[in-house]
Design a protein around this nucleic acid. Structure first.
Lengths: 151, 151
DNA sequence: AGTCAATGTTAGGATACCCAAACAATTATT
DNA sequence: AATAATTGTTTGGGTATCCTAACATTGACT
């Protein structure tokens, strides 16, 4: 029986899930307009302004974002590097889900929180894919080649 | 740009990720031997005895587990129902990862925490699968049939 | 410049989690 | 049964997160 080896920490080994989510949203905002504002982050995260202010201050103290009261928010080099890693993972997952037939808006949402908030639709697609992979010879063979190609 | 619509809550809409993880481990233990002990849960979760006691007491107050001091722990009907849903999701995900060539021990770990703790290996497999799905005609066709078959 | 609306911060409070250390109960061993 | 070892609980702390309400700043408009 597999043990739970996970801390409250994440993939990066240092940041919480919440912090990673904030980072990703800030990356999106800064990519499109150069900086982010508390209100924009709050809106995108679905959190209150006060929670967002607090989170951003925490992230600033960790050296992830540049922040000054009432000012524009940007990512530090370190924050940007981590945010980009997270975003890449997110893109890979959402791509896969789309490939598996999950509608893109749901794929986007689900990619953000696989397992813990997976939707009924995504779950159904994954189930069917697994079934097919076991019974459909063509898919079976294509997957076999895929696996062989990894070596 | 997609908003974060997620609460601190999970798929079930009620429980936290941590609580869901505890539930799943308790399901595993109760399935194999009829009941669970604090120390076993703690071991499986990688948490201290005190944290585990606290979590189990919290879960008891939520009606998810049957608990009495120093006693054997079992799931209530409600707890069992939810735990089984979570476990099903977990099984689907781990199956898929195995299908994609992820070693089963890693698949098991990663299925527990997709996106937030995805390993480099899993990420690599997903990437390659996406690449292949775009370039390998056989896989492409097999996936197309899969998608068509969903209709 | 003065005022108002929008935006951002602080204060105050709550819950979920986690841990170590001290204490208590249970179980195993002599 | 008495003691030792194991297991479980409580206590006392700590951090992360969230929220509302009250306060402060900024920016826009008169």
């Amino acid at each position: 029986m597999a043990k739970n080896t996970s801390n409250p920490k994440t993939r990066t080994g240092e940041l919480t899930e919440t912090t990673e989510n904030y980072l990703k949203r800030i990356l999106w905002l800064t990519s499109s307009k150069g900086y982010a504002r508390i209100s924009e982050i709050a809106e995108l995260m679905g959190r209150s302004l006060s929670s967002t202010t607090e989170a951003v201050q925490r992230m600033a103290s960790m050296g992830l974002v540049n922040y000054a009261k009432y000012g524009k928010i940007t990512l530090t080099d370190q924050g940007k590097k981590i945010a980009e890693e997270i975003n890449t993972t997110y893109l890979v997952l959402s791509d896969l889900l789309v490939l598996l037939g999950v509608p893109s808006d749901i794929a986007i949402e689900d990619a953000c929180s696989m397992e813990h908030q997976i939707s009924a639709i995504t779950l159904d697609r994954l189930k069917k894919f697994i079934e097919q992979a076991k019974s459909n010879p063509k898919l079976q063979e294509a997957l076999k080649e895929f696996i062989d190609g990894l070596k």
